[in-house]
Simulated assay, not measured.
Amino acid sequence: MLLETITKFIGDMGIVNLDYKSGIMIVVALFLLYLAIKKGFEPLLLIPIAFGMLLSNLPGSGIFINHAVITSSEELSDVGLLTIFYILKPILPSLIFLGVGAMTDFGPLIANPKSLLLGAAAQFGIFLAFFAAIFLGFNAQEASSIGIIGGADGPTAIYLTQKLAPALLGAVAVAAYSYMALVPVIQPPIMKLLTTKKERMIKMEQLRNVSQKEKILFPIAVTVIVVLLLPAAAPLIGLLMLGNLFKECGKTLRLSDTASNAMINIVTIMLGLAVGASAQGPTFLVKETILIIILGVFAFAGGTAAGVLLAKLMNAVTGGKINPLIGSAGVSAVPMAARVSQKVGQAENPSNFLLMHAMGPNVAGVIGSAVAASVMLSMFGGY
């Protein structure tokens, strides 16, 4: 009896059941933790994702069961904590958008409506990767989910993928969030390649002051216009703008504070752990995942380049009044992309302050990525 107990104990040890794919993912998780903690690459995103990845690849923990189907409340205790977070993923992206809206100042976009064009241009990478994925043999639903990585918007990527290509959710979500966190690494080389030193040194005029009335009307108007054109955008755009209305109306400070602090922090932890947990070695380390990772970089680089190139064109048209670096902020990584524009610009000219100018395209990119996802969902969601 004692021998059987000892044998069973040894047989249940995780190290005995560790396969090489799970081992690789554990190393990847540790590397992501290193980037987050040592290098400071968006730790709020990378740490929960990496730790979720670490936990789900340690064999025998039972903390995550991929593709679990829950048919009764009694089964919840058997599927693992992170599986429950994963099951909640349909509502988590919209709640993230509610919090983002409560933290976002659309003033720079309202003050300079032309920056909406830069936010739109940066979505070019989404459609570039879409057609590349089609060429590589993915169907339209899968290609849409892969392309949306180029928006550098994790919640939007999860929202679209769970509806169009749920089998790709783990790879798409990990790629989207990883590239969001690696914005400071990926964007600067592209920005410097496509601009001259003289362009990077351009100082822009101060933006005009935006009235509270404009800030209150903006989220209402955007919601009505966008949802009338694209009803599928309501869950993302609607909650994004509701959060912003909480912030700007001056009557719901408690709601704004909750959405922008406690709620979004809780949801970020849950979503990050669920995303990381879905990257289990046996299902994650396949050929399709490698293609998705490559196409994700392609999409993100394409969006960054398109934003910078349009900003260069706008600079030429305006006689040198627009610093092309702000075009890279048209991706939806708020406020990371805007900070990168500021950092690269200030490296060339220490007296240059591009942050507020870059925030216009940056917040436009949030709207743009949600609209792009809604277009794809409207086109391919019925198939």
Score class of each variant (00 low, 15 high):
A373S: 12
M379R: 14
T258L: 13
S211P: 07
P189T: 07
A140E: 13
L118N: 01
M379Q: 11
V27N: 05
A29N: 00
A36T: 08
M314W: 07
G330W: 06
L242Y: 02
A157K: 03
N349C: 12
G327N: 03
G107Y: 00
A29M: 06
P324H: 13
I202W: 03
L169A: 14
A277I: 01
A306R: 06
V79Y: 14
L309N: 06
I202G: 01
E248C: 08
D78W: 08
I326E: 00
D153Q: 03
P93M: 05
I266L: 14
N315M: 11
G272S: 09
K247P: 01
F97L: 14
K312M: 04
K198M: 00
G368Y: 04
L285H: 00
A372L: 08
Q141F: 05
I24P: 00
F124M: 13
K163W: 04
N112Y: 13
Y179F: 13
M204L: 10
A337W: 01
N315P: 09
L217M: 12
P189D: 09
R200I: 01
S56D: 09
Q280S: 15
L325H: 00
M1F: 09
S94G: 15
M13L: 11
K89S: 14
T223H: 05
I293E: 05
S374L: 07
L239S: 01
M270I: 11
L92E: 03
K251S: 14
L58S: 11
S56W: 05
L44V: 08
G80P: 04
G150A: 00
I367L: 14
N352D: 05
I110A: 01
F31H: 12
T5S: 12
H67T: 12
A140W: 11
T196C: 09
P155C: 08
M356F: 15
V286Y: 03
A173P: 00
A132V: 10
P113C: 08
L88T: 08
E348Y: 14
G276A: 11
A102V: 00
K192Y: 12
L164M: 05
M103G: 12
L160W: 00
K89F: 08
I70T: 03
M379F: 07
F9R: 13
V344L: 12
M376C: 11
A50L: 02
G147F: 02
A305D: 02
I186L: 15
K39A: 06
S72D: 15
V79K: 06
K287V: 13
V222S: 14
L182C: 05
A121R: 06
A299C: 07
T196Y: 04
S145A: 14
L109T: 02
T7M: 10
E214A: 12
P335C: 06
G62S: 10
L285A: 07
I292K: 02
N17A: 07
F41Y: 14
A175N: 04
A233E: 02
V267N: 07
L310T: 00
A157L: 02
K215G: 10
I110H: 01
I158V: 15
A122I: 03
F41M: 09
D19T: 15
L236K: 03
A165M: 02
S94C: 09
S178M: 10
M376L: 15
L228K: 12
S278F: 04
